[in-house]
Each structure stands twice: as structure tokens, then as C-alpha cells.
Amino acid sequence: MTRPMIEVQDLVRRYGDTAVVDGVSLRLPERAFVSVIGANGAGKSSLLSMVARLLPASAGRALVAGLDVAATPGDVLARRLGILRQDNGVAARVTIRDLVAFGRYPHSRGRLGPADHAAIADALRFLDLEPLADRFLDEVSGGQRQRAFIAMVLAQDTDCILLDEPLNNLDMRHAAAMMALLRRAVDERGRTIVAVLHDVNFASCYSDLIVAMRDGKVVAVGPPDEIVTPAVLREVYGIDVEVVTVRGYRTVFFYR
């Protein structure tokens, strides 16, 4: 592993006596698609939030591109790291184009230059949002809104992007398109993407690395071949699953 894009050292988040993240250490490489899987309440979102300095850590520290997130000024970090949380029930009524333009704020400070306009247009095109660009966020579907927020994070043009359940609100077709697109952002643009995913099959088909969590701890880290196995998934989710290899991808059958 070359220089890690994200390095997490003994990270802990406590609420009272319960630790939702309980001593997590990780080194995630750059230019990789990393999925974080685990049951509800395993601490995935809290881990992501701490790495993105949205949530202060109770102990331990997180480094992004070598910068300690707790000690780096917010505007400096905003040019290296972008995060999208899962609930985006926004009260402000802005157009999709304006929202994506706000992604440029860390670079432009509100004065959009040619490079900013190019990045905005590029992000809108990348997410196929051009026809919708002048619609307000409350006038589009949940899936379209989700894509608009992803476009904002892409326009932010950070090396590292954290996504908390990016497939929320997306149907099969749009979920697959989103994963393909995120994969392209890694392959073609050299981004590092860390995404919390509930769908193990998507994680298996698109990830370079899967982080499996349970009860605030990392149970296993590895490529899909090592993680998507009946043994590991039983440890993570506590259920018995059947793993079938389809076209070279390990997929999980657990529906009945």
C-alpha cells in the first residue's frame, strides 16, 4: 500500500457508556473504491462523520491526505475531502445548478471563475442533470435530488469523497448507474471514494476494498473475494447466506 489517503487511528465515539465506534484503525489507499458494510447501528455512519469532522471523536484521530481532520482549518479540508450524509431534507429552495455551484464554494468563495463554471458544467453532465439544472430541489424526485447532491460533491473536486448510503432513494437502474459512475470517478479521475452501502452485492461488484463492521469494530478488511464469504457475512450480519459467483463476481443470496 502506498501512502494512505485515509488513516484512522484507534477512533472511538461514545454516547454515555456505549461506544458506537469502538477503537477503529484503518489505512485506506488512494485511487480506490472502498465500501463500508455492516448491520444497522454498526457505527458506519459515525465513522464516516468523524473522518469528515462532522462529529468530534471521543478518542483517537483521523488523517485525510496526511491532514489531521480535527486540527486542520475547515476551509483547507474542504478542498481535500467532500462528504455527503444520508438525509438531505433541505429547507432552502435552490436550483440544482445553484446547489452544484455551492460545491465550488471552497475554491471560489462565492466568486465563480471560468474553472468553477467548467467544474459545475462537468458535474451536471457527469450526472446527467443538464435538463434539470434550473429546477428547484423540491420540484424533482428523490433520486434526482440524490444525484444533484452527488454532483455537488463531485464539483467540490476533492481527492477524497465520503458517501453515506449514496444508493438511498435510487431504483435498480439508477443505483447501478450511480455505482458505475462512482467507479468511473475512481478509475478516470483518480478519486478515492468511501461509501457506506447496505447492498452487499453492489459492494462486491464495484469495490476495490470492503470494510466490514459490527458493533463499532472493524471485523474484516479486504478485497471482495475475501469479504463476501458465508463465514465473514455471518460474523457481520449474523445470518447464513449463500454466495454464488456470477460472471466472476461474488454475489449473495439471502432472500429466503
Binding site: A52, R53, L54, P73, G74, D75, V76, L77, A78, R79, G82, I83, L84, R85, N88, V90, A91, A92, V94, L99, F102, G103, Y105, P106, G110, V153, Q156
Partner: peptide
């Protein structure tokens, strides 16, 4: 104006964009 609108996107989005 810009900062107030970004604040209107919620705390998480505002912090993500580097706003104090």
C-alpha cells in the same frame, strides 16, 4: 448572502463546504 444560503443547506453540508 452566500454563507447564509449555505447555512440553509444544513450544518453538515455547510461544514463540508468549509464554512465556519
Amino acid at each position: 448572502a452566500d454563507r447564509l444560503t449555505i447555512a440553509g443547506l444544513g450544518r453538515d453540508a455547510a461544514v463540508n463546504l468549509g464554512l465556519d
